[in-house]
Each structure stands twice: as C-alpha cells, then as structure tokens.
Design a binder for these strands. Structure first.
Length: 417
DNA sequence: TCTGGGGTCCTAGGACCC
DNA sequence: TCTGGGGTCCTAGGACCC
C-alpha cells in the first residue's frame, strides 16, 4: 500500500496561481482508509496484515468495514456477512466498537481544525476542508493535503487519502481515486478530462436504481450524462434530480463547505436476530427505541414535532407511519405513546417483523422552543432524572419496569450491552 | 448473496387556506 | 353548479449516502 502513496500527485506548480489570482482548487476531501478495520488493528496489533472485517458478527449482519487484506478476497462494505464469510472464512470478524471509533474520529477532527475552521464532517472518517484561507499559514492546497496526510498518520496511526479540487464533487472523486494512502489533485482545466470517462454511478445521487434507469437510455459515463438534455433526464428521475445530475456531470457544483449544520432528525432502529411476532415483545422494543431517541433529544437539546415508526416485515417490505405532535416533545413516554398507537393501527395483525425503528423529525432547538410546554412536563422531569442516574451509574441503570424483562431475556445472548 | 444503522433529500397526493 | 390557482403543511414511500 505504501508503495502507492503520492503516486498520482499533481505537481504544486499546476495549482498555485500568481499572487492576487484566486486559487480555485481549494477544496480538500479527506477520507481515512478502511477506518473501522484500521482502528481494530490499532487496538490489537496482532491483527496487522490480516483480513479484518468489522460487522457481520450476528446472524444478519453486513460488512461495515474491511481491511485491504480482506478486500483482496472481494469483500466489500455493505456486503451480507454470510457472503463475506464464504469469500474468506479465515477473516477476523469483529463487532463494531463505536466508542473507540468516535474517539479516533474526534482526534481526526482536531487535526483538521488545526488547519482551518472550515471543516465539514461527512461521517466519522471523512471530511471536506476549504483551505482557501489557509494559504499564508500552510501554503498551497496540495502542500496542505500532504500535511494532512502526515498529521493524520503521525497523530492517529491510520493512513488517509486526500482529494484536492475546485469543487466538492471533484475533491471527493479525487480522494476515491487516491485510495489507499494516496493524494490526487485535479485542477480546474483538468476537471472535464477527469470526469468524462468515469461511470455515471460515480456521481453523487446516482445509485443502483438510477444507474439502471440511465443505462436504459444508453447513458453509462459521466460524459454521456453531460450530453443528455435535462428534459430527457427529467422524465426518468424528476426535474430536480435531472438538473442536479446534468450540472454535476459538467463539473458544476456550487455547494460550499459548511462547518456546522443542525441535525434534522434523530433515530434508532434495530434488526432482530430472528423475526418477532409477539405483540408484547414488539411493544417492548418500541419502548426501548423510544427511550434511546428521547435520551438523545434531551442530550442534544432538541424537541421533535414529528414521530415516525418504521416497521420492516419478514419479507423486507417496509412500512412507515408518522404523526405530528403538538407541542413538540423530547419525552420518551410521548414518543412511545405515538409510536405504539401507530403500531397498533397497522393493518394485518400478527405479521412477522424483522426491524423496528423510531425517528424524531421536525427538530426544534431549545432556543426555538415556544413556551407551550404545558403538557408532558411531569414525565420530562422524571426522564431528566433518569438521564442523571444513567450518567452516574452507566446507561441502562434506570429504566422502565417493562424493559427489565427485555434486559433479562437478552443477557447472555448476542447482545453485548 | 439476501440484504445494518445512522442520516438526507425528493416526490406525490390530499387537506386546508386565501 | 359541477369547478381556480397558489401556497403550505402533512404523510408515505423510496433513493441515496457513509
């Protein structure tokens, strides 16, 4: 892997403009390589050089991260675990350790913030940087990209790949090309040549379904897409998406790097090891999910206007039901009240359920709250007290009596909490 | 091959209001 | 009597991203 480092680097001379001229290629996309798997190797050095897979330890898991040694066997992210096992029976399968990933991610963010405040985290292991204001301190974008790679490797011990470009899309695609452990910079005049040959699937917003629709039109590459009139595209994918795709394909992407955006929803869901059909058991799961969502809302200081229940049946069909509440709430008892009512109202009782989820949307920050908190105050106080107990004695120290059975049932099973 | 969990965004129809 | 137009909100479903 190390042998590939820096292979595709475009020389700095291509990027720097004469003084006074704007440096256009100032967006960096930084992406740590095989992040979860790399953290597991840091935690246990004996895993180094082995095929390591995070996820897929349960009966229904998918691969969440695979080391490059595992990828050599054809193992990919989001692949069902059973298939990954078949491809490489000797791979080490690890359950995810999100606390550790979060800690390494915080460190990652600190390293990036030491370069510029304009850091937009995309996930735990990935971020955009706008370094147009960092020239005097750290030099041209490509020099900064090299510094980021050094700092991340020295500070965390994990390799990362960096893409440099004039837009988010180009920077993102450049970092993908740079993987693993590399750096690719694309200048403004090279954007067309860079984008045109890529498969349409590479673009943001083109997934499996859209790629299939496009291929029926004979559209396979980004270049094909750029040549397709938006009106033709619109019949397939809708007005908005058509304009969006046509712009991206021609290198037009005006999205800025935004350091912080308020969350729009908070949710928890769980796929069960086996399909459930017992009504009481399902209601207990809905209560447990409501508890988690409520705790998150209070911790982050939001109240939700809308509660959504998600139910995936054994045959994978997915139903959602949502309800807008007045006043907004951060109280788990309220979330449960609505979610359980919506569950009971579903047609066709006694169906086998594969997954349940509870989501809170229409979030209002504490500052935006009206004074209309007349209902729910009592429960809110109770749950705040539970939050304090959890903080002192660990999550789950205090819980509704209805959940005690659930906890006992799960002890000693696959549940590690 | 048999499909996780956390999110964002879009579409489309219906209700409701002016 | 047989039918407006626009705006906004709500709900259900689905594609997509990491």
């Amino acid at each position: 892997m190390a042998a590939r480092a820096g292979v595709s680097t475009v020389s700095e001379a291509n990027v720097v403009r004469t003084p006074g001229q704007k440096i256009l290629e100032s967006i960096l996309h930084v992406d740590m390589d095989a992040f979860y798997a790399s953290v597991e190797v840091l935690k246990d050095a004996s895993l180094a050089g082995k095929p390591v897979v995070v996820g897929g330890t349960g009966t229904r898991g998918v691969v969440m991260s695979a080391s490059y040694e595992a990828r050599a066997y054809g193992i990919r992210n989001a692949m069902p675990a059973v298939r990954a096992r078949r491809l490489c029976p000797d791979a080490v399968f690890m359950p995810p350790d999100f606390e550790s990933y979060q800690a390494h991610s915080n460190r990652f963010r600190e390293i990036l913030l030491a370069i510029t405040p304009t850091v937009e985290p995309i996930s735990l292991d990935e971020a955009f940087l706008d370094v147009s204001g960092a020239y005097l301190l750290f030099g041209a974008p490509v020099a900064i990209a090299e510094k980021v790679r050094r700092d991340v490797r020295d500070g965390i011990g994990i390799a990362c790949s960096v893409g440099v470009g004039p837009t988010k899309l180009v920077a993102k695609l450049a970092s993908r090309k740079a993987k693993p452990d590399g750096l690719v910079a694309v200048t403004g005049e090279d954007v067309d040549a860079f984008l045109t040959p890529l498969p349409a699937r590479a673009l943001w917003g083109v997934g499996e379904k859209t790629a299939e629709l496009l291929s029926r039109l004979g559209v396979r590459t980004v270049g094909d897409l750029a040549r397709t009139p938006p009106a033709v595209l619109a019949r397939l994918v809708g007005e908005q998406q058509a304009t969006n795709l046509n712009d991206l394909a021609r290198g037009i992407d005006s999205r800025r790097v935004v350091a912080y955006e308020a969350p729009k929803s908070v949710s928890h869901e769980e796929t069960f090891d086996r399909d459930l059909d017992d009504h009481e058991e399902l209601l207990r799961e809905i209560l447990a999910l409501s508890q988690k969502v409520g705790a998150r809302l209070r911790e982050d200081g939001y109240r939700a206007r809308t509660v959504t229940l998600k139910v995936r049946l054994a045959n994978f069909t997915t139903l959602t039901r949502s309800r807008t509440t007045d006043p907004p709430t951060d109280v788990a008892a309220d979330l449960y009240h609505h979610a359980s009512e919506m569950f009971r109202a579903l047609p066709g009782a006694r169906r086998r359920v594969r997954l349940l989820g509870v989501a809170a949307t229409g979030l209002l920050a504490a500052g935006e709250q009206q004074l209309a908190l007349l209902r729910g105050e009592r429960w809110s106080d109770v749950e705040r007290a539970v939050d304090r107990i959890d903080k002192r004695f660990g999550l789950g120290s205090a819980m509704p009596a209805a959940l005690l059975d659930r906890r006992r049932e799960r002890r000693g099973s696959s549940d590690r909490g």
